[in-house]
Nucleic acid binder design. Structure first.
Lengths: 235, 235
DNA sequence: TTTTGTGAACTAGTTCACAGCT
DNA sequence: AGCTGTGAACTAGTTCACAAAA
């Protein structure tokens, strides 16, 4: 009942979202009940992990029976805070910011993009495809309060990130989805989630590698035409 | 020397990218040597973790002295496979896909967007802002081979994801950055990194919550002004 | 000295396996 | 009998602390 959300691991929280999505699929198929086991098999999850994750928040199942799909879905919606619309501000109306303003995941199921901000006079006053007028960043404090904005999607250039982030939390915004490479230092009541696309890409690059470690630069470019026999890359 | 990259944890791999970025800052400042300790303090990292991470791949430091910035940077560039240009295809030329095609992190330091694909006849033949012509998805196999594309950025609609992904790995692409909610099942030599923006947003939403768990819908909106006592995050 | 590289200790997260409830 | 909820066992990841190297 009085469990501090911060004691819940990122991975558990992320799985709640995944469970919700999967339950919605089942509900769409008219399924009424699931056991953790059939649920796990269906969506390639782990049944004990499902039970452990859910048990963190209460007893949602019935022993011998399983979980009632609709009721579990409602519980998850509540846990994730999606039972009311959370208002999002896009901070930085560049290509990525305006693309995200229209992104289905950002405009559905509990979220609404309520404002878009930028500092560039050439952008201010323009409309995004979804019909929002781009506002000057200076208006953020006032608009954030008026529109009850809770989440900022930070898509400004790296140099501008720290100041823009501070403006967000000083305006009462409590969550930041940070697409900037900057590492922010928020006050303890503000949650930042970094989505560093460069790190993701470089991590991917690490794993696809270029043959065994220690041979990064080889005599020729064996990756170009080695499409013939896909080398077994593992021992 | 013959360490299998797959035995390296995601978190270690992600940190290599972070270390590289931080080293570039130091190098830009003309710093020649760092100890793991000063490096850690400067960039808010953990010095033993730095040493452990690096020691996975070799002995890059000198005891009593520390690490030579330029040489360590080169080592990391090699480990991350950034010592040559990796060619990227954007698969799905919607708003997000075209925005990513111009994203600085995707056009710098070892990466180049070499092609953009879509199935929509209205998009095919158009040019992205960065000057690439959008090609029909059917041309992917041929173009991927000709252009030596190694990485696909998957930004198609969810329904199209599985087929498009299969097309990618059948065309010899070895890494997929998946912006789709679909959970792909790649062959073992293909690496997929999921960047599920909806999960990220919902996870953030979970942590900002709406007061204590079990009280999702409260009488008033206590999340707005409950900024009083920030409880200490750690013991 | 100083600072790395690394076993040992610790902490977090996952999976097992079963008691207990329906 | 069937399936949840949960301690116990296990596995992965992080931090400590120090012997070995320069």
């Amino acid at each position: 009942m009085t469990l501090d959300r911060r004691s819940v691991s990122e991975s558990t929280a992320a799985r709640l979202s995944l469970y919700l999505r999967s339950l919605e699929v089942l509900e769409g198929e008219g399924v009424r009940h699931v056991s953790s086991d059939s649920f796990a098999r269906r969506f390639e999850l782990n049944s004990s992990q499902i039970r452990k994750d859910l048990a963190t928040f209460g007893e949602f199942g019935v022993r011998g029976v399983g979980y009632e799909v609709a009721s579990l879905r409602r519980h998850l919606v509540g846990l994730l805070g999606l039972d009311r619309t959370r208002r999002i501000a896009i901070v930085g109306a560049g290509r990525l910011g305006t693309a995200l303003a229209d992104y289905p995941g950002f405009r559905s199921g509990g979220f609404a993009v309520a404002a878009v901000f930028d500092t560039d006079p050439a952008r201010i006053g323009a409309r995004t495809r979804s019909g929002l007028t781009i506002s000057p960043l200076d208006d953020l404090p006032e608009m954030a309060a008026d529109l009850a904005i809770e989440v900022a999607v930070l898509t400004v250039p790296e140099e501008a990130a720290a100041a823009a982030a501070r403006l967000c939390w000083d305006s009462g915004i409590s969550g930041i989805l940070n697409f900037t490479p900057a590492r922010l230092a928020p006050p303890s009541h503000v949650r930042v989630k970094n989505v560093d696309l460069k790190i993701q890409l470089e991590t991917l690059s690490f794993y696809i590698g270029a043959g065994p470690i220690g041979l990064s630069r080889e005599k020729e470019e064996p990756w170009r035409r080695t499409r013939s026999r896909s080398l077994p890359r593992r021992t």
